[in-house]
Design a protein around this nucleic acid. Structure first.
Length: 270
DNA sequence: GACAATGTTACAGT
DNA sequence: CACTGTAACATTGT
């Protein structure tokens, strides 16, 4: 389900509510969802949340004793603050605080929750392997061109590689390629300077638009308060198989690239 | 029943 | 080592 913009939306919802909350306990209904089980959480009983932040598609909450609770929603995970019955199906764990409860719901059970010391959380969760944050100041055109150089292969593989750029998934990869007017199955090494420049700004544009519209709710995504985003109404290609290109009217093409469903416009994208 | 689904990883093969 | 394709994880919906 969630890519960078969706995770960012959830984190922004959680931030004001969770800062200062005191942790009581975790209730687990699916063992595999919580790495290491409930025992480790004794370390943060009675401790206060001091920071909530996103890294790639990971959600992190730091306690006042420098333990970090990390959540990855994978495909179908949700973090829900509001107790609305229809949103609480497939509850896998519940984080109980003094003044709020966070429900972790996850139909497909791919999502994970970890608790680690600050010194170990990046290594233990996989965050250590993440590449650059595409909406950060550090992600400049120069840096992007450096990341591209020396690599080759299918463009879409490159965009989805979390160890290069963190946070892009299937939706925003296709949208970025549309903005850049290049096909997702192009070879990375075949892109010229102009195309790479457009791809760089296309990535930023697609992700920023997603954040601005509070995420893409095609099938699953809802924010922490149970509300849908609106970005699905503004996509150019993702999820628009058999529909017409919004720019040229041509029917959009569906292929598999990097093992994932991929949609593009044959006429607009070279 | 077959197939696909917003993610990630392990593994086999080139 | 770098890259590619596939299966697997588990469940739901078409």
């Amino acid at each position: 389900m969630p890519e960078l913009p969706e995770v960012e939306t959830i984190v922004n919802d959680l931030k004001p509510v969770m800062k200062g909350l005191v942790f009581r306990e975790i209730l687990i209904s699916n063992r595999n969802s919580v790495v290491g089980g409930a025992e480790g959480f004794d370390a943060v009983k009675g401790r206060k949340i001091v920071e909530v932040f996103r890294r790639g598609k990971f959600i992190n909450m730091r306690f006042d004793n420098d333990y970090i609770l990390t959540i990855h929603l994978r495909m179908s995970g949700r973090l829900i603050l509001e107790k609305i019955a229809e949103h609480l199906k497939h509850e896998r764990a519940r984080l109980v605080f003094d003044k709020a409860i966070i429900y972790f719901c996850d139909t497909r059970k791919f999502g994970r929750i970890w608790l680690n010391k600050k010194t170990e959380f990046e290594k233990n969760t996989g965050i250590a392997k993440l590449g650059i944050e595409p909406l950060s100041k550090e992600f400049t055109l120069k840096k992007f061109l450096e990341l591209v150089s020396g690599r080759k292969g299918i463009l879409k593989n490159f965009l989805l590689d979390q160890s290069v750029i963190a946070g892009i998934g299937n939706i925003y990869a296709d949208e970025s390629c549309f903005h850049a007017k290049v096909r997702p199955n192009r070879r990375l090494e075949s892109l010229n300077k102009k195309e790479l420049e457009k791809l760089f700004s296309g990535i930023k544009k697609a992700l920023q638009q997603g954040v601005k519209n509070r995420g893409t709710s095609i099938s699953d995504f809802i924010d922490a308060k149970g509300k849908k985003g609106t970005n699905q109404e503004l996509l150019y290609v993702y999820g628009r198989k058999d529909e017409k290109c919004l720019i040229c009217g041509q029917n959009l093409t569906k292929i598999k690239a990097a093992g994932r469903t991929t949609i593009f416009c044959k006429k607009c994208q070279k």
